[in-house]
Design a binder for these strands. Structure first.
Lengths: 110, 110
DNA sequence: TCAGATTGGTCGTTTTAATGGACATAAAAC
DNA sequence: GTTTTATGTCCATTAAAACGACCAATCTGA
């Protein structure tokens, strides 16, 4: 990810917690960083970034770590339609395939 | 993520669904890919990968997209201690700071 | 206690993600 | 049907992730 613009603060916090929780989960299972890194097929330094919630690490790495910890189920529900409150009005089948901005005044929110 | 070794299949599936859900959520909100890309500070091509659940895209990008959609709360709970069934026995304070493998027979699970 | 092992951090290098532009396709709006 | 615009896709270039090796710090089991 391009790091020039800063990440939203709430996101940073969420990721930091995620990393800490991952570390705690690893410790509970008594898996060393070296062993975990091997299983994820990633270097120990990358795993370290994961446990700090570093935003630059790929989702694939995070997801695989969670999988090995047995905690990967929730990933699929992160943006599940059922949990999206904005989706009240439109049901899945009536979803337009594209977004169309009206000629004047587009959807930009100030 | 280093792509040489394949990703676990369940993980691949989960990510694919995540991408599809993200796309659906964007459509519901009538946000164009171009506008969304601008807001996340990434290119349209990267956003496209996100909507396909590409594992190689950084978690930071995914998280920011979810944040803009208003769906970022769950990230912090992905590996929350309360949801970790293996954590039954150890409570957070008694967590060892390091893992120690017994001299013979380490913790590797076959 | 204390020796051995794990972990944290740094650095130079390699590999890969992310870019951005151009073009084709397809879907809305009219 | 026509026009207009969003989206899909490809590719060369560039910025950044991931590596791996090392050292220092510190924990922990014996």
């Amino acid at each position: 990810m391009r790091t020039t613009p800063p990440m939203p603060l709430p996101v940073k916090r969420a990721l930091a917690k995620l990393g800490a929780d991952i570390k705690a989960a690893r410790l509970r299972r008594r898996i060393t960083t070296t062993l975990m890194a091997e299983r994820v097929f990633v270097s120990r330094s990358t795993l370290q970034k994961v446990e700090q919630g570093d935003p630059s690490v790929s989702l694939g790495v995070y997801a695989t770590v969670l999988f090995i910890l047995g905690l990967s189920e929730r990933i699929a529900d992160l943006a599940d339609a059922g949990t999206d409150s904005v989706g009240l009005q439109l049901d899945e089948e009536r979803l337009p395939k594209r977004v169309r901005t009206s000629k004047r005044s587009d959807a930009r929110q100030p």
